[in-house]
């Protein structure tokens, strides 16, 4: 187990040294605070800067608190996902490409340790950043539009976080399969888009799709009750995460690490 922690600590130290530990949470913080702030101040800004003819009445209704929070989640679902994929796609593929993976894996390091340590470190960074962003959104939403009870906020946060975790795991899986980081990134994003599209179009038939967790988080905030597909999707996402990790390890173990 101490061997696993050695690997984990190395991953963490690397994130500290290349400043991922700072810029990723900061980006999420920015993404999270942007929507509540612009929704609130936009009418005033147009008023001040807009040069609209005298007497024009601008009526932009304020979003409800759940809508405001879910606008931030929508940001995480695009730019946030992109960032997660970008910082994860090279973790294994990059080390194989540079050859440093061969230096490490000729030492008696279990392949499972090597991959799960990377996964755990990424998981920690991802949740840290995501929680930072969500807290910012929750805070500004509360100050500007009304408070969402913290417990409900936390539940919604976890619901959508499961989807982000699945995306991160998917990227790490592709990173273990391919030697080129860009290809791993492309496959992850392409697959995420396809799942999102299919789930959106066939949302009545695919109630268990993890891509719908964003919708379910919103519905929960509005109604205070879980929609029918919520738990099946969480279950499926968890199963997929475990499945991806196991297969990443099996595929990686059977790969030849040089040449």
């Amino acid at each position: 187990m101490s061997l696993w922690f050695t690997l984990f600590k190395k991953e963490w130290l690397e994130m500290v040294r290349n400043f991922k530990i700072i810029w990723v949470p900061l980006t999420f913080l920015l993404l999270g605070s942007m929507d509540p702030l612009t929704s609130y101040y936009m009418p005033k800004m147009i008023d001040a800067l807009g040069g609209l003819p005298e007497g024009t009445v601008i009526e932009i209704p304020y979003p409800s608190p759940p809508d405001s929070l879910m606008m931030s989640v929508a940001q995480f679902d695009t730019i946030g996902v992109l960032i997660i994929v970008l910082i994860t796609m090279g973790l294994i593929a990059g080390e194989r490409k540079s050859g440093v993976a061969a230096m490490i894996l000729v030492k008696p390091v279990p392949f499972g340790f090597y991959i799960t340590a990377k996964w755990a470190a990424s998981l920690l960074l991802m949740w840290l950043s995501y929680i930072t962003g969500m807290l910012a959104s929750w805070y500004y939403t509360g100050v500007l539009f009304g408070w969402i009870p913290f417990g409900e906020f936390l539940t919604a946060l976890i619901l959508y976080g499961v989807w982000l975790t699945l995306i991160m795991t998917l990227t790490l899986f592709f990173s273990a399969v391919f030697k080129v980081p860009g290809l791993a990134g492309f496959c992850s994003i392409a697959l995420a888009i396809v799942i999102n599209l299919v789930s959106g179009v066939l949302s009545h038939r695919l109630k268990w799709s993890p891509a719908l967790l964003q919708t379910y988080a919103g519905e929960y905030l509005h109604s205070g009750e879980f929609s029918a597909g919520t738990f099946p999707s969480i279950l499926l996402a968890t199963a997929a995460i475990i499945f991806l990790m196991v297969f990443a390890i099996i595929i990686f173990r059977n790969k030849e690490l040089s040449g």
Binding site: K10, E14, S98, G99, V100, M103, V106, K107, P108, S258
Partner: peptide
Amino acid sequence: RKFIGYLPQHPVFY
């Protein structure tokens, strides 16, 4: 692997 020490032709490090 624990019995072996290996130096590749072009060693790479972190």
